[in-house]
Nucleic acid binder design. Sequence first.
DNA 1: GCCATATTGTCAGTATACTGTCAATTAAAT
DNA 2: ATTTAATTGACAGTATACTGACAATATGGC
Lengths: 178, 178
Amino acid sequence: MPPRTSSPMPSSKPTPVTMDAVYTAPGYLFRRMQQIAVALFIEECRAFDLTPVQYAALVTISTHPGIDATRLSAVIAFDRSTLGNVIERLQAKEFIARKPSPEDKRVKLLYLTKAGASVLNEIMPAVDKAQARMLQPLKPADRKTLLSLLTQLVDLNNEASRVPLRAEDALEHLGRSG
Amino acid sequence: MPPRTSSPMPSSKPTPVTMDAVYTAPGYLFRRMQQIAVALFIEECRAFDLTPVQYAALVTISTHPGIDATRLSAVIAFDRSTLGNVIERLQAKEFIARKPSPEDKRVKLLYLTKAGASVLNEIMPAVDKAQARMLQPLKPADRKTLLSLLTQLVDLNNEASRVPLRAEDALEHLGRSG
DNA sequence: GCCATATTGTCAGTATACTGTCAATTAAAT
DNA sequence: ATTTAATTGACAGTATACTGACAATATGGC
């Protein structure tokens, strides 16, 4: 961040504020891009009644059948409290089913239903289209650069959020069956 | 987006899904960075009782005294409905005041209070620190590149969100006094 | 085996976001 | 001038997010 003033001397006068304090802040730009990304996802996937978060949860349950809510939250780095409601909605739509774990009475295991597997398969092209659209305005080389820097940044800042991502391999040694 | 399969022939078989369908999607990465950006902002600004959105609103009211809620929403590209609650909270904290417009009985004009101007002045260093922290893990040259690409992308996708940004100059010719 | 500790799912409370709607008011059309 | 359009702020409803708490259950140290 460049300094907001170029005063050569320290001063107690109020700093003059400009809109640059908003527009050039990376946090503001990330917020805008998130809004845009969600809007494009919803637009492309209107026919499927799935939000971006619900899609991510569905993909993860598909690749990790029998995962529980806490581990699901770690694999996609979504808040555990938030995920409770997401799971409820996916269950209400009958895209997933929950079964109590025989090993741990606290845990409820998550599985895709036929309808869930079906909608996941069908929504893929629309999701890809939305993801492509949000980078479309950039030149192909710039898209690659941005995606690379973004991936690095998310990874390097992993511990900064409440729910850091703990990918599959990081979960294996925590597993009840491993 | 790379194709999810490398099948040489069209097929009706279900596509094998991997976590890449989540992890490599730009929309997912933007969501993560937004989470991280908010977490860092809240952490650095804990002493000031201001959220990122409230901060952006306060900056804008500071640079546009007497702006109304609808124009405020256009200048920072936040949803009008959402902004109503944000304004209420800023008013409850006595950081802003609302006065009815003498020219238009529908409109309520927004002004910073002394306390609002004061908190805005005091929070600046913490905000700058948070913004710097989220890019810190990258090399300086990469930070510049990312910020540049991100700025371009937000600008070029401006119309994709519900509330496109209409900056100050775009508002002037809509103004009641212009 | 018992007790302190940790984990799981859940819940209440707050704060963004978006959709759609509405009454009051203003501006535009004719 | 009167009907029509658009605008403004507000509201209800849904969906993320995070904080902090809680009961039920598991696990570890001893």
